[in-house]
Simulated scan of single mutants.
Amino acid sequence: MDLNTVLEVCDARDFTGWRTGDAYVGGGTYLFSEPQPHLNRLIDLSRLGWTPIRWLPNGNLEIAGTCTVAELFEFTDHPLFEQCCHAFLASWKIWHMATVGGNLCNGLPAGPLISLTAALDGEILLRSPVGVLRWVSVHEFITGAGKKVLRPGEVLRSVTIPAEALNRRTAFRQASLYGLGRSGALIIGTRDRAGELEITVTAATTRPIRVRFRNWPNAAELRTAIDSAVRPGEWFDDIHGLPEWRRHMALLLAEEIRRELA
């Protein structure tokens, strides 16, 4: 879609100051999907030259905000990365344009890279227009449907996955109202070497919900923990699923995961 209110496109390498009406553009798959009448300048991140994805000396995995879905998928054979990338149900073009940073900064409940990085304890590095850096966990970054703690002018520089999280056993479940539909519930379970279980609920809720168990829970304990963690109004409600159905599927899939990882 043409953005006919945009008067200027600025290279991020030459960008000096943030102003009202600005927006960063990475892949642009969301930005150009619907009217953006409040925008009049785009700051293009594509020429910053950030390494898309790399291993750090301490074994952690750093994913740049400009890393595309295709680059993420091709980098590792970790099953959870493959499952979350396929949860996009997107075209070849989207896979090669949509970015990790864009998916996180949109903050949509069905964002599968939110699901991936939240389940693996991702830490986001944000950079202000004047170079001030701050770290925030994925769980703290997303506060509601489309809501995040991103401050004006901040750009998502990277998200880092700790080595320990990458070594956990994982289980993945997804449900949609129809075959190629947007996720109505996306649940990920992880089990570490000490046997602790962690369940992350996304898509069904307005923000990532995590419950953790040091001692292995039974079905009733898991159900109670999830219901207690989701506050009133946090079961998402839109055309892709009613809150009651989303809750039902989240609890059902979480129980499947508990049994798989037991």
Rank of each mutant, 00 (worst) to 15 (best):
D44W: 04
D44Q: 05
E74V: 08
L48Y: 02
L39A: 04
N40L: 00
H38C: 01
G65L: 06
F75S: 10
Q36S: 00
C67M: 08
V25K: 00
T66A: 12
V25S: 02
D44I: 04
Y30D: 13
P52H: 08
C67A: 15
F32L: 13
W50N: 04
S33G: 14
S33R: 04
W50K: 07
E74A: 15
F75A: 10
G27Q: 03
L61K: 09
S33C: 07
L39Y: 07
L42S: 03
T29V: 08
H78C: 13
D77N: 05
L31T: 06
E71W: 00
I43R: 00
E34V: 07
P52N: 07
W55P: 04
R41P: 06
P52A: 10
Q36W: 01
V25G: 03
E62S: 10
E71D: 02
P37K: 12
P57Y: 09
S33I: 10
I53A: 08
H78G: 10
T68D: 03
N58L: 04
D44M: 02
I63T: 14
H78R: 13
T66H: 05
E74Q: 14
R41T: 12
Y30E: 11
I43Q: 01
L39P: 05
L45R: 07
N40I: 00
T51V: 15
L72I: 09
Q36F: 00
Y30A: 04
L72Q: 12
L45Q: 12
I53L: 12
G26E: 02
S33V: 09
L42H: 09
L42I: 03
Y24C: 02
L45A: 06
G65Y: 04
V25Y: 01
S46I: 07
P35H: 02
R47K: 09
L48W: 02
T76V: 11
P35I: 07
G49Q: 00
T76C: 11
D44N: 10
V69L: 14
P37V: 13
F32T: 11
I63H: 12
L56M: 11
G65I: 05
T29M: 07
P52Y: 06
V69E: 06
S33P: 01
G28Q: 08
I63K: 11
L61R: 06
I43W: 02
A70F: 08
A64I: 13
G49P: 00
R47Q: 06
I63Q: 11
P52M: 06
D77F: 03
R47T: 03
L56R: 11
G27I: 02
T51G: 10
P35T: 07
G26W: 00
Y24W: 06
P37W: 12
F73H: 13
F32Y: 15
L42C: 09
Y30W: 15
R54Q: 14
T68V: 04
Y24I: 05
L31G: 03
Q36A: 02
I53F: 06
N60T: 09
W55R: 15
H38F: 06
N58E: 12
E74F: 04
L61A: 09
L45W: 10
G59E: 15
L45Y: 08
H38E: 15
W55M: 15
T76A: 14
P35G: 05
N60P: 05
L48D: 02
W50A: 12
T29S: 03
A70C: 07
L72Y: 04
W55F: 14
